[in-house]
């Protein structure tokens, strides 16, 4: 009896420790980022850093304006959504409501496999396939906003498909039957009753996809061109916040290095906002059944 009690207490301690690990990791990362990033921002000047359009860290005197890269990250993410959201949601609808069981056995693992492919492989695929195609059909050198959007659009598919599909499956069958019983076709019943009823779950999938897209680095850095500029067309090159960090971290020192960490802080704030909106969506969908 007493041995059992000791064991239970010990196991509770183990569980507590494991639970604390992830929280500790988040806290330590926060501290690291903000302790290094905020002073750098202060030194550069907050508006100069966030709103400045000149990034020349090795000039004398240097300029550290990341505005173009903030816009770059937003453009690339938006481009990925334009491609990934319609394809992802329609795929989820197909998988949940239209797919024959035999096809499902192939399609579902295929979409899951998509999630497991390392991002460097996506980047490689983009570089060898997408970039030359864009060069051929749209002109420019191919490494561009468009290339990054296409590859990121594919990369966020598994997230959107997975979350949306389970949201669609969670909708009560009675809505579907009710629509059919009114003489609606299967398509209309699905798109006018089931899909709207699953909208908060689908939206959660999209938000997760945004998080994935904005944080993606390796694939983007290979195919986006990485010029510091606000792209004027989709075939222009673009540099994202993540690309900026990975490109320059290797050789940076002093304030330059701190400015890159501050770039990380901005990225972190983006992710924080996305996570918060995710929580808001979740609690809203819980309140509304």
């Amino acid at each position: 009896m007493r041995l059992g009690k000791i064991r239970e207490t010990a196991m509770q301690g183990v569980f507590f420790l494991t639970a604390i690990t992830s929280i500790a990791a988040v806290v330590i990362i926060c501290i690291f980022l903000f302790c290094n990033g905020i002073p750098a921002m202060a030194k550069i000047g907050f508006s100069e850093f966030l709103g400045g359009q000149k990034w020349s860290p090795t000039n004398v005197p240097p300029s550290f304006g990341i505005f173009d890269m903030i816009i770059g990250s937003i453009y690339v993410t938006a481009g990925a959504l334009v491609i990934g959201v319609p394809v992802g949601i329609l795929t989820a609808v197909f998988l949940a409501r239209f797919c024959p069981a035999s096809l499902y056995k192939v399609l579902k693992p295929a979409t899951e496999l998509l999630a497991g492919i390392p991002s460097i492989v996506y980047g490689f695929f983009g570089l060898m396939v997408i970039v030359p195609l864009i060069r051929q059909y749209f002109g420019g050198n191919g490494s561009s906003l468009l290339a990054a959007s296409i590859v990121l659009g594919i990369m966020i598919l598994p997230t959107i498909i997975g979350v949306s599909e389970s949201a669609i499956r969670a909708v009560p069958e009675s809505y579907y039957e009710g629509a059919l019983a009114l003489g609606a076709t299967k398509e209309r019943s699905v798109f006018k009753t089931i899909l709207p009823a699953s909208k908060s779950g689908v939206l959660a999938g999209v938000v997760l996809g945004i998080g994935r897209a904005i944080g993606e680095t390796m694939a983007v850095v290979l195919i986006a061109g990485n010029q510091v500029q606000i792209p004027k067309s989709i075939t222009d090159g673009v540099r994202t916040l993540t690309a900026n960090i990975v490109l320059e971290m290797g050789y940076s020192t002093g304030l330059h290095r701190e400015a890159l960490i501050a770039t990380g802080v901005v990225l972190f704030v983006f992710i924080l906002l996305i996570t918060l909106s995710m929580q808001a969506i979740k609690s809203r969908s819980e309140n509304h059944g």
Binding site: P172, Y175, E177, G178, A181, L182, G183, T193, P196, G289
Partner: peptide, 16 residues
């Protein structure tokens, strides 16, 4: 057919 023959279910199922 289903337009001509309407149905009310055991459990009320208004759309959301």
């Amino acid at each position: 057919l289903r337009k001509r023959v309407g149905m009310v279910f055991q459990k009320a199922n208004p759309f959301p």
